[in-house]
């Protein structure tokens, strides 16, 4: 009899000590698992070993992420408009702080990058264009490659790496430490206080930094062309650029850069705030956020290329 009891005990899987309820807290399991717990299991649980299960789980994660991101973006948009005039004295300093973090403090890095970009583009194209006697297309190359594509995308990636990643860590830590709940207890909407200033600040920062990067890249492009003895006067270079630019360029560059900022802010805030995280999960959330930002920015860029081609 004792042997049977011992065998039964051995067959019983033991609960790990960490997951056991504490003394005084006899916790009863709710009859139905919540939707959040199922979602968390799909999103963060281990991937199944089978081929079909692996891809099925990946597909489910993709759908849940798209759904979550979409819902979060719509909620943010709703809060932004419904609380347009609320607590301006609190939000203005937060937006200014975001502009300083994601804009002004990144300016030296952006200027260095633009200087290097001018060198890379002009250094490579001058030798090619000189060989075929097409130096008059130097400005066109700068507009097509730098102003329209490389400038906005590089700025977005720079803001993402310097500010976006820090955003996830900051917000996820605040959530894990209960600061977000403290905001709710004070009747402060966390989306309004934490997300809206970041979205506005990053959209304006990416836009402004792109303008600086583009202007500086154009100047450094001419400098490198001058150093390589290209027979091109500054006036001709400016005329080439002005000739290559269209009215649509200004609108699309402004829209594209603002959307890049919105994407970076929304995705990083979503990964920092939307799910309850433990401190040890913050790094994984940061990696996910950065990867998704890069993918979404590139996809948006591709969409704008299509608009250019059609327009």
């Amino acid at each position: 009899m004792q042997l049977c009891a011992a065998r039964a005990l051995l067959k019983t899987p033991l609960t790990p000590w960490r997951t056991r309820p504490k003394f005084g807290a006899v916790q009863k399991v709710l009859t139905k698992p919540s939707a959040e717990s199922i979602k968390a299991l799909v999103l963060r649980g281990p991937l199944p070993p089978s081929f079909v299960g692996f891809f099925g789980c990946k597909l489910l994660r993709l759908i849940l992420t798209v759904q979550g991101l979409g819902a979060f973006a719509l909620i943010t948009l709703g809060v932004m408009f419904s609380k347009l005039g609320t607590a301006r004295s609190v939000l203005r300093p937060l937006i200014r702080s975001q502009l300083a973090h994601a804009g002004v403090r990144l300016l030296p890095m952006v200027l260095f990058l633009s200087f290097a970009l001018g060198l890379v583009v002009i250094g490579q194209t001058v030798s090619l264009l000189s060989r075929v006697g097409a130096n008059e297309y130097l400005g066109t190359v700068m507009v097509t490659a730098v102003l329209r594509e490389l400038g906005p995308l590089l700025t977005a990636l720079l803001v993402l790496s310097r500010v976006g990643a820090a955003n996830v860590i900051e917000l996820a830590t605040a959530r894990a430490l209960g600061e977000v709940e403290a905001l709710e207890a004070l009747g402060i909407d966390p989306i309004h206080y934490l997300v809206v200033p970041r979205v506005i600040g990053m959209a304006l920062s990416v836009f402004a930094l792109t303008i600086y990067l583009n202007l500086c890249a154009l100047a450094s492009g001419y400098l490198w062309a001058f150093l390589q003895d290209v027979p091109l006067k500054p006036g001709e270079y400016v005329q080439q650029i002005a000739g290559a630019l269209e009215g649509l360029d200004f609108v699309l560059i402004a829209l594209k850069t603002c959307f890049f900022g919105v994407i970076i802010a929304t995705v990083t805030c979503y990964h920092g705030l939307a799910q309850p995280l433990r401190l040890e999960e913050v790094s994984a959330a940061t990696i996910r956020a950065v990867a998704q930002c890069v993918i979404l920015c590139v996809m948006l860029d591709a969409l704008f290329i299509v608009i250019y081609l059609v327009g």
Binding site: A87, S89, V90, G178, E179, E181, A182, A185, L186, G187
Partner: peptide
């Protein structure tokens, strides 16, 4: 809240106390 009150570390003590009044 317990365990240190979950204060906002980016704000000063004055900022923490003033935040609800400023917001509302």
């Amino acid at each position: 809240f317990g365990e240190g009150g979950r204060l906002f570390n980016q704000l000063t003590i004055w900022g923490n106390v003033a935040l609800p009044l400023q917001y509302h």
